[in-house]
């Protein structure tokens, strides 16, 4: 995947480009806003990593021009300015994500992949939580490599939990997403399906945790 990295700090550019190349990106770098602008007129990139303070043309102007030309290439803004206004302004101008310096390399890589996926209109193709894996293309769950047989509502609940892995999902949200068609049941029906799923996953190294007052969380568990 081609990445354009526009950043005025030479040292940060050098080290971060190295790290991203190792991670599998084809990285082009430039230190100058106007140069980046002309590069973007001729070259195609899958993602742009953009610092806001740049010589000759600042990052927000560059972004504005890019979007004015109708280029939809996802843009992740990097900045040392941590102001919320800046963030809102950047996102309004068409940035896809925003990362304040200093940041963790792993965090940056995750965000880059996320915006590329989103721009391609794809959800994460394969999600894994411990031994549980979900393939979004054929919507199949596997546990320890074996296909998990689930009834439709169970499948629905687990699907919501796995796509929000690492984040809690409230009972109300689950009910809304899975059970809203037949309104006759109350929200407590969710508990029945959680209970069934827990039985299915029991002892597998992945489980559903109940968070008091917050909802449910799918997480890998030490067996």
């Amino acid at each position: 995947m081609r990445l354009l990295f526009v950043e005025d700090s030479v040292k940060l550019t050098a080290w971060l480009a190295r790290a991203l190349r190792q991670h599998g990106f084809a990285v082009d770098t430039t230190h100058d806003g106007a140069q980046a602008d002309s590069l973007l007129r001729t070259e195609h990139y899958d993602v742009i990593l953009l610092d806001l303070s740049l010589p000759t043309m600042d990052g927000l102007t560059l972004l504005q021009r890019l979007r004015a030309r109708g280029t939809a290439t996802p843009v992740v803004i990097l900045t040392a300015r941590g102001d919320l206004e800046d963030r809102v302004h950047g996102l309004n101008l068409g940035a896809d994500d925003y990362l304040a310096k200093p940041f963790e390399l792993t965090e940056l890589e995750a965000r880059l992949h996320a915006v590329i996926r989103r721009s391609n209109g794809l959800a994460a193709p394969r999600i894994a939580v411990g031994p549980l894996a979900y393939d979004s293309s054929d919507r199949v769950f596997t546990l320890d490599g074996r296909r998990l047989a689930l009834r439709p509502k169970e499948h629905g609940v687990l699907e919501v939990l796995v796509t929000r892995a690492g984040k809690a999902v409230s009972k109300a949200q689950l009910y809304e997403r899975v059970f809203s068609i037949d309104k006759v049941t109350g929200q407590d029906v969710v508990e029945i399906y959680i209970h069934r799923l827990r039985k299915q996953l029991h002892g597998s190294g992945v489980g559903i945790v109940t968070l008091r007052g917050l909802g449910y969380l799918l997480e890998a568990q030490a067996s």
């Binding site: 690492g166 984040k167 809690a168 945790v209 968070l211 008091r212 007052g213 917050l214 969380l217 997480e219």
Partner: peptide, 23 residues
């Protein structure tokens, strides 16, 4: 507060802390 608490589920689970919300 509910929303803000959800943001800290990850770190809390990291220390195996039972994080809850009551209202």
């Amino acid at each position: 507060a509910h929303e803000a608490t959800l943001d800290h589920v990850g770190p809390a689970r990291g220390r195996s802390i039972d994080l809850g919300f009551e209202t």
